[in-house]
Amino acid sequence: MTLYIGREASKLWKRVCAETTTEIYLLAENWKYLLAGLIFQYVHGLAARGVHYLHRPGPILQDVGFLLLPELGQDKAYISETLFTFIFLSFVLWTFHPFIMKSKKIYTVLVWCRVLAFLVASQFLRIITFYSTQLPGPNYHCREGSKLATLPRPDSVVEVLLINFPRGIVYGCGDLIFSSHMIFTLVFVRSYQKYGSRRFIKQLAWLLAIVQSFLIVASRKHYTVDVVVAWYTVNLVVFFVDKKLPELPDRTSGAALLPLNTKDKDSRTKEENHKLLNGNSGDPADWRQRTQVNGKTLEDGNTGHPDTAMNGV
């Protein structure tokens, strides 16, 4: 039993080391895209912080979702955030599964490059939208009478740049159309739909996205239009941006992404030259035994009739 555990631990450690080497190579080639995506996450938070200064509380707008869905109440608003946190952490952990799992179809760095591209495009459209028109926030801390509904004038630029993370993000107002929670949820679900392997998890992910939509409205964090616009905008963004990006390499073929070193290249060149000198190509289908008759080389299929070939019939 101890020997088996030790052997499996050794295999796992080798798998982690090999995957780490590959991912470091990919990170060295794609770090600019990852860094740009992460910087834009800060820019998005900064924009949401800025629109909070412009927000003016007012009467809650008439909303079909508010009429159909019962209000969860301020004491149960955490349910929506809990589900979103579960979806977020589950997807992050899944993107790192190639380090420990045998069955793997993705490269972590390349998947996050695509995910950040989808997020940046969607968030850019979101910034334009909520700065175009500021609606009175339906959330409890954004209503009339709340001290957090409008931020006081900042004393310095540093106060704005710090964005008071994470409190400034959680208790933001004015950044309504369209829902940021649904951007992350739909991008994650669409990514797993394409690169995931478990059909049950794909179906569960879409179900959780629908439940998340209802909980956002029921907790009065967004109007129904914020969720509806997110559904078709994010899906369209992912559809069109995904067409512009290069497809991920298929790991099932076993092809390595790491470049060959000089020694490997020399050995492979010598092996190919040796095959050519012996009359064999690199294709295993050509490695067939041939019989020479009267100076002519015959295939295996003709070796059964040497006399016929010799008589010219």
Rank of each mutant, 00 (worst) to 15 (best):
L151Q: 00
R114T: 01
R190W: 09
H52Y: 05
N164T: 01
V170C: 07
D307F: 12
G196E: 01
L46V: 02
H141T: 12
P306A: 08
V158F: 09
A205C: 12
L161M: 04
L258A: 06
H97L: 14
F91K: 02
W206N: 07
R143A: 02
K221T: 11
V109L: 03
K76S: 08
L35R: 09
P136S: 03
T21M: 10
L248W: 05
K194F: 08
E19W: 04
S103R: 13
L208S: 09
M1W: 09
N139K: 06
L257K: 07
V293H: 09
K244I: 12
R49E: 05
N280F: 14
D175A: 01
E159W: 00
S281L: 10
Y42E: 05
P138K: 00
P284S: 02
L69K: 05
V92K: 07
V16D: 03
L119D: 02
F124R: 05
P154N: 00
T224L: 12
L161W: 02
F84Y: 10
P246S: 07
G45F: 00
R198L: 14
S156I: 01
Y4V: 15
N302A: 14
Y4D: 12
I60E: 03
E272I: 12
H52F: 03
F200G: 11
E29C: 15
S180A: 14
A77S: 09
K265A: 10
N139V: 10
W31D: 10
N302M: 14
A28G: 15
T269N: 11
K76N: 11
I177R: 02
V109T: 06
N311T: 15
S132C: 14
V158H: 09
G137M: 03
Q203H: 12
A121S: 08
G304Q: 15
A255P: 10
P284K: 02
K194T: 14
K194M: 08
D226V: 00
V158C: 13
V217C: 04
N311I: 15
P306C: 04
I128M: 10
I210R: 08
Y171M: 01
I201D: 04
L3C: 08
E159S: 05
V157D: 04
E272P: 10
T291L: 13
K265G: 07
T129N: 06
Y25S: 06
F200C: 11
F66D: 00
L3V: 12
R290D: 06
L54Q: 05
E23N: 08
V92I: 15
K147Y: 11
K32W: 04
Y140G: 11
F130W: 00
Y33W: 15
C142R: 01
Y25Q: 03
A209P: 07
F184W: 09
S219A: 15
F240V: 09
W287H: 13
H44F: 12
L38E: 08
I201F: 08
C17H: 11
G73T: 01
C173E: 00
G312I: 09
K265D: 05
C142Y: 02
L68Y: 06
H97R: 15
V225I: 12
T2C: 10
G58L: 01
R198C: 12
L67E: 13
D300I: 15
L186P: 01
T150A: 03
I183D: 03
Y107M: 08
I201N: 03
